[in-house]
Amino acid sequence: MEDITALYRDTFPHVARVIKQLGGDLETAKDLFHDAMIIYMEKNPPEIRVSAKAYLIGITRILWMKQQKLKIREEGLSIPEDFYASEAEQPLLEYLRTAGEKCMQLLQAFYYEQMELQEMADTFHYSNVRSVTVQKHKCLQKVRATVKNTMLYEGAHN
């Protein structure tokens, strides 16, 4: 996380000036910059052809234009299509966040952070890789069942 902190400290003032010039406030600059950092962290470094700073400024600008519904001219930079959960997805996401927090934390470590099983066992205090694997499996089953029930419910109300 030290690298990320250093990158944050170094880059955010530049991003803030850009967003300010475009007419945005501090909260907006922060939100968009955080999303850009997330997109950056999700990428493999070799996929990025410019400096981290230039990349982050470019992505923040694109996110701003997207938010303002402006036409995007920048080429060579793109944001993942499914980056934001749509309004329609929010209730289920919120439900999983509150009702299934423990499972969601474990599952995101594997599916999002792509943590190794051993590291997961250490982080979540499981005695070994096998028990963390079993728990991950149970959690995925649980989340899948929740998704299924929600979709049945949505289906019944549409």
Partner: peptide, 30 residues
Amino acid sequence: VKHQRRAIQMIRWYGRDLQRERLSAIYDAL
């Protein structure tokens, strides 16, 4: 398969929200 695909998608969005929280904490601690 459909439900599992959506579950994984939910997990990824959740992961991004956790990152947002971490980044806010970094900002506050600078």
